[in-house]
């Protein structure tokens, strides 16, 4: 421990070092820091001292709060993976159930919705009891997936505000999960982000068996899926480029920057205008 104030060994104007001292420093007891800072020559007067202190505290607290909140990215990763697992398992079991219940109840249907109707039945035989119970499990899993999705929707904007706004919270969470965290997503080139989730296709391509994939999970983005096939490659590139920038802003600053969304909107408007021009050209 020391008896030094936060400004010891710090040049006036060096906010980064000052902020680090505010965060990491310690002292056994307080002292009349403003007077000491002026006496030591750190600041010409008290007013200048308080100005420097304000900058250092704001920078330190903003940085540390942002870091602590970002640590939430791992919670997001677990939640979105669990959500996908629940949904996939629910669908698999629903398929099994529809075979079974279709034979038992003389009622056809498929999927989670069908499971809900089966779950509402009063079983009258031991066979029906098992089928209805299985249906209840399917419904529980589907409900859990929904709850997880709701959680992802509230959590993603805190962890990655810009990415969540541009990609939608669920796609944002999937990208973070595929990369293994927000930091590693922020460090990936946009060409990699473009094909995240298409690893199988990418390796097939690298082994020379297939053409290179144009998109991974970003396919679910409206701007990719809703673009005509001829332009989908450029749409995927534009979307991946802007989402990569969003992830970097989220990781390095954490501040929401709505102008990023606007840039993507403009880029997409340009791509789609091209498509409309072509169509008009075709009509002529």
């Amino acid at each position: 421990m020391t008896g030094d104030g936060w400004f010891a060994g710090c040049d006036a104007g060096d906010t980064a070092t000052a902020a680090e001292h505010v965060r990491e420093g310690r002292a056994d007891a307080p002292a009349d820091w403003p007077t000491r800072a002026v006496e030591s020559g750190f600041a010409p007067d008290e007013e200048a001292y308080y100005t420097a202190l304000h900058e250092a505290c704001v920078a330190a607290t903003r940085g540390e709060a942002t870091e602590a909140e970002r640590a939430g990215d791992q919670q997001l990763v677990h939640a979105v993976r669990a959500m996908d697992d629940c949904m996939r398992t629910a669908n698999e079991l629903a398929e099994r159930l529809s075979e079974w219940a279709g034979a038992l109840f003389d009622e056809d249907g498929a999927g989670v919705e069908f499971a809900r109707t089966v779950a509402d039945r009063e079983p009258t035989t031991p066979d029906e009891e098992r089928a209805v119970s299985l249906a209840e499990r399917v419904v529980d899993l589907a409900d859990e997936a929904e709850d997880l999705e709701a959680y992802v929707e509230t959590r993603a904007p805190t962890v990655a505000p810009n990415l969540a706004a541009m990609a939608g919270p669920v796609l944002a969470a999937r990208l973070v999960a595929l990369a293994g965290g927000l930091e590693s997503l922020a460090k990936k080139p946009s060409g990699t982000v473009q094909v995240l989730g298409a690893e199988d296709a990418l390796f097939a391509h690298l082994r020379g068996h297939a053409s290179s994939p144009k998109h991974g999970v970003i396919y679910t983005h409206e701007y990719v899926r809703g673009t005509r096939p001829a332009d989908r490659g450029s749409a995927a590139r534009a979307v991946a480029g802007k989402l990569t920038i969003a992830a970097r802003v989220d990781h390095y600053s954490g501040e929401r920057k709505p102008e990023l969304d606007a840039e993507l909107d403009e880029r997409m408007a340009a791509i789609r205008a091209r498509a409309e021009d072509d169509e008009e050209g075709d009509e002529e």
């Binding site: 104030g5 505010v22 002292a27 307080p30 820091w33 100005t51 202190l53 304000h54 709060a65």
Partner: peptide, 22 residues
């Protein structure tokens, strides 16, 4: 400019005694 935010635990004054004046 006179408000100094500190992300600290009030049970551990030694972690901010180098910032807060006596």
């Amino acid at each position: 400019p006179n408000l100094f935010p500190l992300l600290k635990d009030a049970r551990k004054p030694e972690t901010y005694a180098h910032v807060v004046e006596s």
